[in-house]
Amino acid sequence: MILPILGLVAGFAIGYVFPVVIPLAYAKLFSVALLASLDSVFGGLRAALGGHFDNTVFISGFFTNALLAAFLVFVGDRLGIDLYYVALLTFGFRIFKNLAILRRHLLKKHGLERPHLPDE
């Protein structure tokens, strides 16, 4: 668990120190890509908790999801279709769902969940 967190901190530091700024025209694409990768990470965490984590699936999903999301938004922009909001909704929805599942997994693991109670 310590290694991914170290990686996260290192990446954050690099991003903060390096003078990389996304041009305004691509800021939208980048934010969608970021959301997609966040979704992948939460999905990976959930899979790990569920015990069916697959490294290849996780890593390929991380990159393809981000790139595909950005590409779709880009194409949508060209076609005049606001796929941006679609991507936001989809990924946002999935992130919340994954978070909920994560929470229940953790609660179950620590025996805090009362049995047979509907989701709040």
Binding site: L3, I5, G7, V9, G11, I14, G15, Y16, S37, F62
Partner: peptide, 13 residues
């Protein structure tokens, strides 16, 4: 996974 996390951190920053 550490690498992926690094990329994520970079993007967030």
């Amino acid at each position: 996974i550490a690498c992926v996390c690094m990329v994520l951190g970079f993007m967030v920053a």
